[in-house]
């Protein structure tokens, strides 16, 4: 099996298509209304669930309003409407034990059937007057313990992201595959200057071509994702801008290639430009986004993928996806390379 890596690439892409698309999301809370509550109120919240099964074991359903890591209010009444909707009643004390006029709470629902789900910071309680000592006296603390965890193969549920979390297997690995392939292209450019073998230049050209293609795919999948999560296809985001610059540079590489007749001169000068452009850009692609604020994860205080957002089930799909897209990219590059070789041979005859 000489071409085992092509088969492996196809298998991985099939795997991420199937597993990435078919695995359900964890249970989550879509919204709770009303979102604005007052102190001294017996608040009844209508909570909409996502992928939830509230009617299963509904007498074991529990719910809390979490103020911070130690303090929470338990729900006194829980009325299940259907699988996707539940009404929760919380007695909110007349005074809160904090000195903020407006305090945000996190809603937490636990069910033996679905496991625990949260709506982080989704509810706001307004205090009419502040008295922390009375607040401390009135506070009935509920202990959050024995949370259930659903034993199933699921992807995490995140508000704002919802089902688009599956784009993690396309946008991010395509971007990484682009880096790997462009780097390989630069390596062949360096080898060409070293050994002056025309085939190395063809390899550099083929790899850079695929890198540019993956970059375009990465930017398009990213823009669609950005439309759903940030609201606009293009927000002044450092990483988006730097990617656009990278595409301009590699576009210029092909314009430069096109402006030479002599194949030896074309190969030599475009190899020089490829190395120079790569070195002037690529280190900065990593450094500049860290200096400026970005909407992307991993910059400007945002949570990075890999710490919290990428859980173990997602890693099972995400890590092979990097290899899969790189292998497919290499396959395309090989085809471009072979057509370039054939064209050369035709011209010689």
């Amino acid at each position: 099996m000489k071409y085992w890596w092509k088969a492996l690439g196809v298998l991985i892409i099939l795997y991420i298509l199937l597993v990435g698309m078919l695995t359900p999301l964890k249970t989550g809370i879509l919204e709770a209304s009303p979102a604005n509550l007052h102190t001294g109120q017996e608040a009844t919240l209508t909570v909409k669930g996502y992928n939830s099964n509230f009617t299963l074991e509904k007498e074991k359903l529990r719910a809390w309003l979490k103020m911070d890591s130690t303090r929470a209010i338990a729900a006194t009444r829980i009325d299940v409407v259907d699988d996707r909707e539940v009404k929760l009643t919380f007695p909110i004390p007349a005074y809160l034990p904090v000195d903020q006029p407006v305090k945000d709470f996190t809603l937490l629902i636990d069910s033996p059937a679905d496991g625990a789900s949260v709506l982080p910071g989704g509810l706001v309680v307004t205090q009419d007057s502040i008295d922390t000592t009375k607040g401390d006296l009135l506070w009935v603390n509920a202990d959050i313990s024995q949370l259930h965890e659903k034993q199933a193969f699921t992807f995490p549920y995140r508000n704002i992201l919802y089902e688009t979390i599956r784009n993690t297997y396309y946008h991010v690995p395509m971007w990484m595959a682009m880096f790997i392939i462009l780097t390989a292209g630069v390596v062949f450019s360096i080898r060409f200057l070293w050994k002056a073998n025309p085939d190395d230049d063809r390899k550099a050209m083929a790899l850079t071509n695929v890198g540019l293609f993956l970059g375009i795919l990465g930017i398009v999948t990213g823009a669609i994702w950005a439309k759903y999560t940030w609201g606009k296809f293009w927000s002044w985001d450092v990483k988006q801008n730097m990617t656009a610059i990278a595409l301009l540079i590699y576009g210029a590489y092909f314009v430069l290639r096109g402006s030479f007749e002599d194949p030896e001169k074309k190969a030599r000068i475009s190899a020089v430009f490829n190395i120079f452009a790569y070195a002037s850009l690529v280190p900065l692609l990593y450094i500049i986004p860290k200096l400026t604020d970005s909407l992307h994860p991993g910059a400007g205080g945002n949570i990075a993928f890999g710490s919290q957002d990428l859980d173990n089930t997602m890693k099972l799909v995400f890590r092979p996806a990097i290899i899969g897209w790189t292998l497919i990219g290499l396959w395309i590059a090989e085809i471009i390379l072979r057509t370039a070789r054939l064209r050369e041979r035709l011209l010689e005859d």
């Binding site: 730097m242 610059i245 990278a246 301009l248 540079i249 576009g251 210029a252 314009v255 430069l256 402006s259 030479f260 001169k265 000068i269 020089v272 430009f273 120079f276 452009a277 002037s280 850009l281 900065l284 500049i288």
Partner: peptide, 23 residues
């Protein structure tokens, strides 16, 4: 680099602008 090609003034802008943007 651009001086090696024929249409050097156009090439100069498209080659140098993206490279210089990070700076």
């Amino acid at each position: 680099i651009a001086a090696k090609a024929d249409n050097s003034s156009t090439l100069m802008a498209i080659l140098s602008f993206p490279v210089v943007i990070p700076i």
